[in-house]
């Protein structure tokens, strides 16, 4: 048994080596296609995470006019406390919001110098009792005296969802085309491998080697090409996630946690990236297996 397992592995890698140009083309196509699939899955997961985050109580920010009077600010504060739409609020006074401004624009001193403590708007950061009511809060407060504007992220999330879903469709469509290309290339590679070993195959059939014995090395070759491509693709996807993660973390450091970060939610966790990697590896093996199986069925039948 181990003897024949040895033979199968030796044959498989020998074939791969003999067919290296075709094998490389097939592997590269698998890498590109599965990377696209992986990236699409990452984005999808990110959006799903963001949506979950949002429905767990996302903030609404009321920006007051910088020159709003104390009575205006107090009035809004009382209304907010009494409102059933609002769960709780924190207030950033002139000093606190100026600090935030300095942090956010630390690399743009021109912006900072345009403000003084007293000309910086004060902000109410509020958590909604029901995140779906953000629009009502906006309608209720944005025209109150002393209120400069009401910022709520619901709109952004909806826009983002729309954009990412279009992006996902495009990515998945391209990925599908590339997956078909990988299938065809693996098919051609295996066909070439069979052709270059036709003498051996003919002798094997003649002396009574079973069909599976003849087929397995070729099928394994296709699967290994799919697997190699898939492993590289999942490493790429993992790398992509880390780059995104680092970008977001750097931005967050600047922004403190004044505004619940939408960005941080859009990055899939590394745990999720591992699951995506496993999905990619399995699909790589499946693509390789199908491509080579079809070739074997068409060109190796008794």
């Amino acid at each position: 048994m181990s003897f024949s397992a040895n033979r199968v592995l030796r044959d498989t890698f020998f074939n791969l080596w003999r067919n290296i140009q075709y094998a490389l083309a097939a592997i590269l196509t698998v890498i590109v296609s599965l990377s696209l699939v992986g990236a699409a899955l990452l984005v999808k997961q990110g959006v799903a995470n963001a949506t979950v985050e949002w429905s767990h109580g996302v903030g609404v920010s009321l920006w007051m006019n910088a020159d709003a009077s104390n009575s205006e600010v107090n009035g809004i504060s009382t209304q907010l406390k009494q409102s059933t739409l609002i769960q709780s609020c924190s207030y950033l006074d002139h000093n606190a919001s100026y600090d935030l401004l300095k942090k956010l624009y630390s690399n743009q001193p021109v912006v900072v110098s345009a403000f003084t403590i007293n000309t910086t708007p004060t902000i109410f950061n509020c958590v909604l009792s029901n995140p779906n009511n953000a629009i009502e809060v906006y309608n209720q407060y944005s025209h109150q005296p002393g209120v400069y504007t009401v910022v709520y992220p619901g709109q952004e999330i909806k826009t983002m969802e729309k954009i990412t879903s279009i992006l996902q469709i495009i990515m998945l469509g391209m990925a599908l085309l590339m997956v078909i290309a990988s299938l065809v290339l693996i098919f051609v590679t295996i066909r070439m491998a069979i052709f270059s070993r036709r003498r051996e195959v003919a002798v094997m059939k003649l002396v009574g080697a079973t069909n599976w014995f003849i087929r397995v090395p070729f099928m394994l070759e296709g699967m290994i090409e799919g697997l190699i491509g898939a492993v590289i693709a999942s490493l790429l996807v993992f790398g992509l996630r880390n780059i995104m993660g680092n970008l977001v973390r750097n931005t967050e450091k600047l922004g403190s946690s004044a505004q619940p970060s939408l960005l941080s939610a859009t990055v899939a966790t590394s745990h999720e990236a591992i699951i995506i990697g496993i999905i990619l590896i399995i699909s790589g093996a499946v693509v390789g297996g199908i491509g080579s199986f079809v070739a074997v069925r068409r060109f190796l039948d008794v």
């Binding site: 003649l206 002396v207 079973t210």
Partner: peptide
Amino acid sequence: SSWKVPYYRRNIGCVFQDFRLLP
């Protein structure tokens, strides 16, 4: 049945005009 054919062929040896050796 076709899956039995390989086992059947093990009982038959074959020689051809063009030898068919693996070079």
